[in-house]
Amino acid sequence: MLQIRHAIFVAAGVCLSFTLAVAGCGQAGPATSPETTATAGADPTDDRGDAKAALAAAIDKSQEGSARVTFTMLSPSGSKTVTHVDFDPGTQRVSTDSWSEHTGETMYILLVEQDLYLRSNSGPLPHVWLHTDRAELPPGSSIHAMAEGDMIGAADLMRAVTAVEWTGDTEITGTVDLTRWSPALLPELGDAMLASPLKADLDKEGRLTHLSLGDSDLNPELPVLALQYRRFGQPVTILPPTDAVSMPDTMVAALGN
Results as ranks from 00 to 15, higher is better:
Val82Ser: 03
Ser75Leu: 11
Ala192Asp: 10
Glu188Met: 10
Gln114Asn: 13
Thr91Ala: 08
Thr91Cys: 04
Asp177Ile: 09
Glu113Gly: 12
Asp115Pro: 04
Ala244Trp: 12
Ser66Gly: 14
Ser141Met: 06
Met247Val: 02
Asp201Gln: 00
Gly26Ala: 01
Ala253Glu: 15
Thr175Gly: 04
Leu111Ile: 15
Thr81Pro: 04
Gly41Glu: 15
Pro197Leu: 11
Val161Lys: 08
Ser196Asp: 00
Thr170Val: 10
Pro124Cys: 00
Thr132Trp: 06
Met247Asp: 10
Ala145Glu: 05
Val176Trp: 02
Ser216Met: 15
Val94Ala: 06
Phe71Glu: 07
His84Asn: 13
Leu125Ala: 07
Asp97Gly: 02
Met1Gln: 14
Pro187Gly: 05
Ser62Gly: 14
Ser33Asp: 03
Gln114Glu: 11
Ala40Asn: 11
Ala38Tyr: 02
Pro241Glu: 09
Gln27Ala: 08
Ser17Phe: 12
Pro34Ile: 00
Thr37Ile: 06
Gly65Phe: 10
Phe71Tyr: 15
Ala244Glu: 11
Ile238His: 05
Asn219Gly: 07
Ala57Val: 01
Ser17Leu: 07
Glu221Asp: 13
Pro124Arg: 12
Arg134Asp: 00
Asp150Gln: 00
Arg159Phe: 02
Ala67Cys: 14
Gly256Pro: 08
Met251Phe: 13
Ser98Gln: 09
Ile238Asn: 09
Glu105Phe: 09
Cys25Tyr: 03
Ala145Asn: 08
Ala254Gln: 07
Met1Asp: 14
Tyr117Trp: 10
Met151Lys: 04
Leu125Arg: 07
Ala145Ser: 04
Ser62Met: 01
Glu205Asn: 10
Ser212Met: 06
Ala145Met: 00
Leu16Phe: 12
Val82Asn: 09
Asp177Arg: 00
Ser33Lys: 00
Ser216Lys: 00
Ile152Val: 10
Pro139Asp: 11
Lys204Asp: 15
Thr32Phe: 01
Thr81Leu: 11
Ile8Cys: 13
Ala135Glu: 10
Leu137His: 13
Met247Glu: 04
Glu113Ile: 02
Pro76Glu: 13
Leu137Pro: 14
Phe18Ala: 05
Thr175Pro: 00
Val128Ile: 15
Lys52Tyr: 04
Ala28Phe: 10
Ala226Pro: 06
Gly49Arg: 03
Gly140Gln: 09
Asp243Met: 05
Ala11Cys: 00
Met158Cys: 02
Ala40Ile: 14
Gln92Tyr: 07
Thr237Glu: 15
Thr72Arg: 15
Gln228Arg: 11
Leu20Val: 12
Thr132Ile: 00
Val176His: 05
Glu64Tyr: 07
Gly104Thr: 11
Gly233Met: 05
Gly78Ala: 01
Ala58Gln: 08
Ala40Tyr: 13
Ala192Asn: 03
Gly123Pro: 02
Ala163Trp: 01
Ala7Phe: 12
Leu208Phe: 05
Gly206Arg: 08
Asp47Trp: 09
Pro235Lys: 05
Gly256His: 03
Val10His: 04
Leu213Thr: 04
Pro235Phe: 02
Met1His: 10
Ala51Gly: 03
Ser33Ala: 13
Glu188Ser: 14
Tyr229Val: 06
Gly29Lys: 03
